[in-house]
Write a protein that binds this DNA or RNA. Structure first.
Length: 646
RNA sequence: GCCGGCGUAGCUCAGCGGUAGAGCAGCUGAUUCGUAAUCAGCAGGUCGUCGGUUCAAUCCCGACCGCCGGCUCCA
């Protein structure tokens, strides 16, 4: 029998008899790995553990610790799900069932909707199948064989898929009486699937096309241990706990009323105060960074939107027109045409560039009712918008400047983990290649300078120019798209924008759209979830709540409150004749950063007893000391409430 | 927009073919208390809207509005 050499990830080489399986290799390396092995990667290709290896290769045993391992695991769990569904409901037809970022789903065509009770039954059946521990085996068929195979089983969706496959041989995976068209790889046995949970069922179009039949998609997740599953479920609970819609209601930050309109946000005083604080900060920073503020109308003439191209390219997101003395007007879905009007108001010189027009501009876009979602997806929102008009030769420096600004701004809110995506030229786009090249290069350079790791989204740009999107990672590790910097090669042409250069000739400026926070609504929604409602002191609607022990301290408590208010601290007084425990509980639920307890002791010492958010009791502190410390926390926009340090 | 679920007091929810209930919040009163819920009383709802079935509808049916989970689409 011949031998083969396998190179392992640690650099070592091991000799095996030809035909050795991945499982056997894992066993040779160690019992632990043998147990954890899910698949094997040979020369970079993922394969089943039980497939014989015939030639020298680089080999790597794949476990749940890698994203590839999880993908295999989840994919096999989705097959297990389909297996269980077919056993319980033989009439159901299977469509597709891949692994996704967190878990898996499987789409079914079934005569009636699946109920939660069905899910429970399916889970139970899955558990039985795991217990039975069926071997999962791969089989290659010719296309014709596969077609007959699935036609016989009336799996019409599979037949459709096979017909579209380019290769002449296809693979199927079988476990017990269940078979699925699948590229693989898969786990060697259903017994490997240790802990799983079906999470939800929802509608999904066959192949994502709304013209196709709506199927039922069952979502689920699985892990190698019950502990890991429990941790995951706990995380889902945490996400629910932080839901900005729930916290927004509890903390009285905002609401959306059916009566005033879906997708239209009502900012309550506390939410509005947070927004104002963000806006003040935003304006200060923009002023420091060389931006000019502008204001523009909420509606504009149809001719403007014709020139800008919105009426041809963006119409489905615009509300229908209104008649103003025989002229058609539209509510704005974007601010750019107005900013361009300001630019075009007079002849511009190269000496004026770059011009940076910033506006917290409220726009309205039609969104289909099914996509509305709290503050994250609305119909009216305020963009922290700016348009930069820049001469081609200054463009690169300007982009570096913008990206640096984005990062600085976001860091202030406590974000320091970003992911950037640079989208390059798509088919059917405007502008010449040189411009696209130059602009894309500038984006890459700027990302490098700002130490932003980016991914390239090839051909993912808008038709009018390349862009960089920056996503932030929140406290739960979720990514949120907020910032975007986009070139626009279209508008300068459409509006025939010019500036006079050193050579006394007219030149075309570059136009850059950019938003740092995205929209105030979405950013606010994200902040609520990121902070779990416990805003950093500088953003908190109430900095301190003064609570009295008894009525005896009322006068002193009022003095305390007034003194704090005079020092610029947002302060409330709770002088109700409730027990101290009750008042603390309420203030704690409001997530106020500091609770200042005032009893006889404090009156005597001319102090306040400080309780930090989170429950830490600091005891008595002189008023001036408290004020100074809180001031510095606010000034520095610290994300902690801690008064003890520094 | 589509599929499924849901819509009962300010909030969280129970109920169900014979015109409604709890806790919290609110109001009134008592209580004056040292770090996450003091007690009592009162008040509060055309059961999302509009139609239909029925002797009778919050409950059954239909349409619409809204919300939730997805699909599709996006700041």
């Amino acid at each position: 029998m011949s031998e083969i050499r396998l190179r392992l990830p640690d650099g070592s080489e091991k000799v095996f008899p030809a035909g050795v399986t991945g499982q056997e290799v894992a066993e040779k390396i160690g019992p632990r790995l043998a147990k954890d092995a899910l698949a094997v990667k040979l020369d970079g290709r993922l394969q089943d553990l039980n497939i014989p290896v015939e030639k020298d290769s680089a080999a790597e045993i794949v476990t749940f610790g890698s994203s590839e391992g999880r993908e295999v695991y989840w994919h096999s769990t989705s097959h297990l799900l389909a297996h269980a569904v077919k056993q319980l409901f033989p009439q159901a037809k299977v469509a597709i069932g891949p692994a996704i970022e967190e878990g898996f789903y499987y789409d079914f065509d079934f005569e009636r909707p699946f109920t939660p009770e069905d899910l429970a039954k399916i889970e139970q059946k899955m558990a039985e199948l795991v217990k039975a521990g069926s071997r999962i085996t791969r089989r290659n068929l010719t296309k014709a064989e596969a077609l007959t195979f699935f036609q016989k089983r009336s799996e019409t969706y599979k037949v459709e898929l096979i017909n579209e496959l380019p290769d002449n041989t296809v693979s199927i995976y079988e476990q017990d009486d269940f078979a699925d068209l699948c590229r693989g790889p898969h786990l060697p046995s259903t017994a490997k699937i240790k802990a799983f949970k079906l999470l939800s069922v929802a509608g999904a179009y066959w192949r994502g096309n709304e013209k196709n039949k709506m199927l039922q998609r069952i979502y689920g997740i699985s892990f190698t241990t019950k502990d890991a599953l429990d941790a995951h479920l706990a995380r889902l609970e945490e996400i629910k706990r932080r839901d900005h819609r729930k916290l927004g209601k509890e903390l009285d930050l905002f609401s959306i009323s059916e009566e005033s309109g879906a997708g239209l946000v009502l900012w309550h005083p506390r939410g509005a105060l947070i927004r104002k604080t963000i806006e003040d900060f935003w304006r200060d920073e923009h002023q420091k960074n060389g931006y000019d503020f502008v204001y523009s109308p909420h509606v504009g003439r149809a001719t403007l939107w014709e020139t800008s191209g919105h009426l041809s390219f963006y119409r489905e997101n615009m509300y229908s027109s209104m008649d103003v003395e025989g002229q058609e007007y539209y509510v704005k879905p974007m601010n750019c045409p107005f900013h361009i009007m300001i630019y075009k108001n007079k002849l511009r010189s190269y000496r004026e560039l770059p011009m940076r027009f910033a506006e917290l501009g409220t726009v309205y876009r039609f969104e289909r009712s099914g996509v509305l979602h709290g503050l994250l997806r609305v119909r009216g929102f305020t963009q922290d918008d700016a348009h930069i008009f820049v001469a081609p030769e200054e463009m690169e420096a300007e982009i570096i400047r913008v990206i640096g600004f984005v990062v600085k701004m976001l860091k202030t809110f406590g974000f320091d983990d970003f992911k950037a995506y640079i989208a390059t030229r798509p088919e059917n786009s405007v502008g010449d290649n040189r411009m696209w090249e130059q602009a894309t290069q500038a984006l890459k350079l700027a990302a490098d300078k700002a130490e932003l790791a980016y991914e390239l989204d090839e051909a993912g740009g808008a038709f009018y120019g390349p862009k960089i999107d920056i996503k932030i990672k929140d406290a739960l590790g979720r990514l949120w798209q907020c910032s975007t910097v986009q070139f626009d090669f279209n508008l300068p042409e459409r509006f025939d924008m010019n500036f006079i250069g050193v050579d006394n000739q007219a030149h075309r400026p570059y136009v850059v759209h950019r938003a740092l926070l995205g929209s105030l609504e979405r950013f606010f929604g994200m902040l609520i979830e990121h902070y779990a409602g416990a805003f950093p002191v500088w953003l908190a609607p109430v900095h301190a709540k003064v609570v009295t022990i008894t009525d005896k301290q009322l006068d002193y408590a009022k003095d305390v409150r007034d003194k704090l208010l005079a020092a610029g601290l947002r302060t409330e007084l709770d002088a109700r004749s409730e027990k101290i425990g009750f008042k603390i509980r309420e203030a704690a639920l409001e997530k106020v950063p500091y609770i200042l307890v005032v009893g006889d002791k404090e009156v005597q010492q001319n102090a306040v007893a400080v309780r930090e958010r989170g429950g830490k009791d600091l005891g008595a502190m002189a008023m001036d000391e408290f004020i100074t410390k809180v001031h510095s926390i606010i000034q520095e926009k610290r994300t902690t409430t801690e008064l003890t340090r520094g």
